[in-house]
Design a protein around this nucleic acid. Structure first.
Lengths: 192, 192
DNA sequence: CTTGAATGAGACATCAATGTCTCATATGGG
DNA sequence: CCCATATGAGACATTGATGTCTCATTCAAG
């Protein structure tokens, strides 16, 4: 009782449960608590003991998604080197979280109330800053706002994640597809 | 009674109701039948008389979205002129339906059962064909598959619609933002 | 005016998911 | 071995949305 810290007997792995929930909800955003529990391999009672309710579960997933994105941003070193390379690194680092991100992106109920997690604003700011840096260095065109580019990047993440999920595109092309489309666009160019 | 065709006394405007529902559900995808009815300015009873249930309503919205997209494709003349111009026309024509499209795009329950509306497949095919035409004519790069480009276009539509809805980007920039990003990409180029 | 049709308002039953509870069981530590 | 703790299974009440029903009202046509 003294130190009930993590790791005593706990057959319960919070991280594992969250990831299972994310994987399921990415495919079926209306999944029941029962289905989530089943997907995580635990009973509904246990799921409910650790997450006060569906809302709390979604909030936890939101926090997880934000944390993974921030970690990805850290790992991508967005302030180093050419902005285009930083964008490439960012997409690569965020790829494992793309499914979760796609789910959260569509869970617009999160953004209904005014009490939205300020983590999104931080993320937006960091990604926006990256695009702005690319514009100021002359690498990126300046007629598309950094805010729009950030939104578009989210959309491409969602599209990419779903396209892979449904088997329309190969999972190994995820990074290539997003980076090449975002940076280079569709038009063919004669260039270096 | 003889000819109860549309237009007798009907204060009920099916199209108006569907558009109100689309506008509401685009912002709050979990809106109640009650809220939908209120948003459409009719009673829940009437709403229920014309749409057997929430499911039927969503199906009707799906059919409306597909019809609008097909109309947009027709109007865009995807087989005429340079493919890049056809894409530009397509984005312009589809813009009014972008919000509805974004809602349907996230309503992935529609694609759970195997009985998904074949209209999507037709649309996918037509848009994919446009990108393929651009590749074959040498306008578009060939290292991004037409299928991915189609998925990405959907994602950009959703991103654009939401960004406008939340006031992050100006509505008048919708077409420009999407077309320029999709065709030209972010990288700055020295060119014509 | 009279009539038929559609609507609005509200009552009502139904149903699914949620949240809470109890109890039996297993498991690890002392 | 004994105890504490966490879990699984399931019963149970609650809640919110849904779908159905009735009835009064309105409105246009005849």
């Amino acid at each position: 009782m003294s130190h009930m810290g993590y790791g005593c007997l706990m057959a319960f792995d919070r991280d594992h449960v969250l990831r299972a929930a994310a994987a399921l909800l990415t495919r079926k955003s209306t999944a029941t608590m029962d289905e989530v529990a089943k997907a995580a391999g635990i009973s509904r009672a246990t799921l409910h003991r650790h997450f006060a309710g569906r809302d709390a579960l979604v909030r936890a997933l939101e926090a997880l998604g934000i944390a993974e994105c921030e970690a990805a941003l850290d790992a991508a070193r967005p302030d180093e080197g050419p902005a285009r390379d930083a964008v490439t690194r960012l997409v690569r680092e965020i790829e494992p979280a793309a499914g979760l991100l796609a789910f959260l992106y569509t869970e617009n109920q999160l953004f209904e109330g005014e009490e939205q997690n300020e983590g999104w604003a931080r993320l937006d700011e960091r990604i926006t800053a990256l695009f702005r840096r690319g514009q100021e260095s002359g690498e990126f065109r300046i007629d598309l706002t950094p805010v729009w580019l950030t939104e578009a990047l989210y959309g491409l993440f969602a599209s990419g994640a779903w396209a892979v999920l449904e088997g329309r595109v190969a999972g190994k092309d995820f990074q290539f597809n997003i980076v090449e489309l975002l940076l280079g666009g569709v038009l063919r160019r004669e260039e270096s």
